[in-house]
């Protein structure tokens, strides 16, 4: 059963949220989803770039009150 976990990386600057995402994704099973909360604008564009480059799947990226909710699905 696929799970979704959340990492709260608000308040940290690039590349902190990306590093937290990568550390978190290593602990997941294929098919699981990870939601990263980030207040860093750069990370909101950098994380999808990384996800596309390494071949995971972007599920969604939404911004609410200055916080990005970026959801990634582990594919491998």
């Amino acid at each position: 059963m696929a799970e979704r976990k959340t990492i709260d990386a608000r308040g940290t600057f690039c590349p902190g949220p990306l590093m937290e995402l990568i550390a978190g994704i290593k602990l997941l099973e294929v098919g699981d989803e990870l939601e990263v909360l980030s207040s860093d604008k750069g990370s909101a564009s950098d994380i999808p770039e990384w996800v596309n480059k390494v071949g995971h799947e972007m599920v969604s990226s939404t911004e609410e009150d200055g916080v990005w909710h970026i959801v990634v699905r582990k594919t491998k």
């Binding site: 308040g11 940290t12 600057f13 590349p15 902190g16 590093m19 550390a23 290593k26």
Partner: peptide, 17 residues
């Protein structure tokens, strides 16, 4: 004064991740 990742952590991330 900001909460950037400490540079040593970044080098360690490079190795570990």
């Amino acid at each position: 004064q900001k909460n950037v990742p400490p540079f040593k952590s970044l080098f360690e991330n490079a190795v570990e991740l």
